[in-house]
Amino acid sequence: MKSVTTRYLMTCAAIGAAAGVLLIPVNFLAFAFTATAPMLVAVIVGFWLVGPVTALALVRRPGAALLTSGVSGVISMASPAGPSAIVTTLMVGAALELGFLITFYKVWKPWLFYATATAFQLYYLYTAFTFYEMETTSTWTQVLFCTLMMVSAWAAVWAGLRLAARLADTGVARGLAPRRTVANADTARADV
């Protein structure tokens, strides 16, 4: 806990707050869609991924996705989802962390983001199939549902990565990511 700076916590909190604000209407939409056109739920699942992907890509530190999604869950409790919002977002955050955990937080390439999101989405598809009794639907419905869900997730990862890159350009993540080695650090320290 000691090694985690407040600045890192609050940076994730800020991204989480923004993601949470986004998730409030999305939660309302999700309720409306589940009730009327579940196919459309597949389209919006990506929204849960944008926040944690952005945070992870921006600060590149363990726990960023979990923290960001936890905060976005707390914020989006102000929707019909209530406390269950936290459970949902924490699940997404934890799933995203997994891909990076098994590579010991050494790999930060885009493919890992896509692969992790894909793996999570496959798991999510499985639960969705049970919930909606998807086996009883026609094949084309199933194919459409799966396609939409995957496309939604990939689009979210793409958007998150792009957003993170543009944010990095603005310099807000300066000094947060531990990965980058500081050039001429030793000389600087020597002459200081």
Binding site: A168, D169, G171, A173, R174, G175, R180, T181, V182, A183, N184, A185, A188, V192
Partner: peptide, 19 residues
């Protein structure tokens, strides 16, 4: 007291030449 900020520009990181 001498302070040099750590500058970061995209992927390159360096210590500011100016204190």
């Amino acid at each position: 007291v001498v302070v040099r900020h750590v500058l970061e520009d995209g992927e390159t990181v360096e210590v500011s030449p100016r204190a």
